[in-house]
Design a protein around this nucleic acid. Structure first.
Lengths: 125, 125
DNA sequence: CGCCTTGTTATATATTATATATAACAAGTA
DNA sequence: TACTTGTTATATATAATATATAACAAGGCG
């Protein structure tokens, strides 16, 4: 579980952690049932505060990517069909991307080609 | 040019303005050469501060969606092929969406179907 | 049982981002 | 000149982000 943080980025650290875990699940580095490092340990490992990790974990649980247990810590949730909330979250991102693409005169087939390529790029990340 | 703002949203107002303009261009409501309202007027119209509008306009110019002139104000940029910076910006959004989709066990064809549907939905918005 | 690890919550503080307010400046044009 | 436009400067208030320290709660293990 490698997380690359950019402390100079305008993207909040907790969101970078969130994105890193989602990317890990999507790419198969993190598999169902696997445990994430405890909040305190991950915080020390990547040099940030415990609460920042905790915020990322809480959001990941809220969005159904992980489950949090008192003893077992954070474990990857089993695969499940996307919920309406998941679809809404994903759709918001795609709509922003599609609007920018179309506003830049990008044809639908080119946009879809880009989407397909980026989806495939998650394979071995 | 109708802008819907959600003052209770966690999304900054300047970004909502930014997104609204991009959506307007993508949907054809705003066409090349068309002028946007002056920063002061739009600010009054939607009930926010002038600098918040100015920040949105500055970002829109920075990303190549509009051009700003002393006298003519803000006008929609002519259609042009997406720059590498545009592709990078769009790709970041799509990658986040694709990662969430794949982490939720969404097949590529389903993800692409969603992308195509959302792109088409921009038509008459 | 005590002990330890885990997530969780509480409180406080510092820094940055966001938004507003007022004012002045700079450029273009009628 | 006068007006409108974007632009910059300064100040202030609120919210978000990140850190720090501490304590609490649940579950398992010797």
């Amino acid at each position: 579980m490698i997380l690359e943080l950019d402390m100079a980025s305008e993207i909040p650290i907790y969101q970078q952690v969130y994105d890193g875990v989602v990317l890990g699940i999507a790419s198969g580095v993190l598999t169902m049932g696997e445990a994430l490092p405890p909040v305190r340990q991950l915080a020390v490992d990547i040099g940030i505060n415990m609460h920042t990790v905790n915020k990322a974990y809480s959001l990941l649980r809220q969005d159904g990517f992980i489950q949090l247990h008192r003893r077992d810590g954070a474990v990857i949730s089993p695969d499940a069909a996307p919920s309406p909330a998941d679809i809404a979250r994903i759709s918001a991102l795609v709509t922003s991307a599609a609007a920018q693409a179309k506003a830049k005169a990008m044809a639908q087939e080119d946009f879809l080609a880009l989407c397909g390529r980026l989806y495939d790029a998650l394979k071995g990340a």
